[in-house]
Simulated assay, not measured.
Amino acid sequence: MAGLDKIISQIKEESQETAARTLAAARDEAEKVLAAARKEAESECADIERRSRQSVANILERGQSAADLRKRGSILAEKQKLIGDTIEKAKAELKGMDTDAYFDMILKLAVKSAQEGKGELLFSEKDLARVPEGFEDRLNAALKDKDAALHISKDTRDIDAGFVLTYGGIEENCSINAIFDSAHELLQDKVQEILFS
């Protein structure tokens, strides 16, 4: 029996060694799998962190761009308002000039707008009532070089300030509002240059 015990003992020993080697190999394999899983998890975490940082940076950049755009829009709107207010104040000042200064301006504007030949100036009812004595003579004296003559009509036009110039049924609106409207873009550019340069 001693031989059988020895064989059993040897089989047991070999089984234990095989089991120990298998267990060691399994542990090594488990360590490798665990290390690979750790490495993959670290890589995934780093990738998630990088994507998150990029996403946050993109959101912040879009937010900053939107804020900058809104700021620029507000500044532009305020500039446009200031320009418009300045133009309206200039228009109101022209309309509110004292009679002598106002008709000096009208004379210069009429001379500039007059064409060769005979024409008529039509004022608003208010302005017609305050035309200075001798204004038509002064106007025609200033027009001699242009070979033009203008007569102040008793008819009126529904304008706030300025005049309407007529030549044989053809009218040119030289009211202050019409002049400002036709030169609106130029006036905006000039006022912007003065205010913001």
Rank of each mutant, 00 (worst) to 15 (best):
S55Y: 08
L69I: 09
Q54F: 06
A101L: 14
K190A: 02
S52M: 01
A178D: 13
A114T: 05
R38Y: 08
A110V: 13
T86K: 11
A46E: 12
L121M: 08
S9Y: 06
R62A: 10
F196V: 00
M105Y: 06
G168P: 08
E29Q: 11
K6T: 05
K190W: 03
S153G: 14
A36Q: 12
L122F: 13
P132Y: 04
A30N: 10
A36S: 15
K79S: 05
I152M: 04
I75Y: 05
L109Y: 08
V56L: 05
A66H: 14
A26H: 11
K89R: 09
A77F: 04
E13T: 02
F103G: 02
R62N: 13
A183I: 00
I159K: 02
E193H: 12
F103H: 04
F163G: 01
L150R: 01
G73R: 03
I11A: 11
I194R: 00
S55D: 11
D160Y: 06
A92Y: 09
D181Q: 07
A90W: 03
I11K: 07
Q188I: 00
K146R: 07
A178Q: 13
F103C: 01
S65D: 13
G73F: 03
T22M: 05
R50N: 05
N140D: 14
I7L: 05
A142R: 02
R21P: 01
K6V: 00
A129E: 15
I176V: 15
L23M: 03
F163T: 00
V164D: 01
A37V: 08
K126A: 10
A129T: 14
S153Y: 15
E136D: 07
R138C: 03
G117N: 09
D47C: 01
D155M: 08
K81C: 06
A57H: 06
E125P: 08
K144R: 15
L34Y: 10
A101C: 14
R21V: 07
A67D: 07
L60G: 10
R21N: 14
Q192R: 12
G96N: 14
I59Q: 13
D100I: 04
A110K: 00
N58R: 07
F135H: 07
C45W: 06
R21F: 12
R51K: 04
D47P: 01
R157E: 13
M97S: 12
S182G: 09
E88H: 11
K6D: 15
I83W: 02
Q188H: 02
R62H: 10
T156K: 06
K71C: 08
A178K: 04
I8N: 04
L143R: 00
T166R: 07
Q80T: 00
F180T: 00
M105D: 06
D155I: 07
I11G: 01
S182H: 07
R21W: 14
L165C: 13
G162E: 02
A129P: 15
K154T: 11
A35E: 14
P132S: 10
E185D: 15
G63T: 14
L34V: 12
E13A: 09
G162S: 08
A161E: 03
L82M: 13
M1S: 15
E116L: 01
K108E: 15
D127M: 09
S15W: 07
L94A: 10
I159Q: 04
E42F: 12
I48R: 06
K89A: 11
L139K: 02
K32I: 11
K81L: 14
F196N: 06
T86C: 14
T156V: 15
R72C: 14
L23R: 05
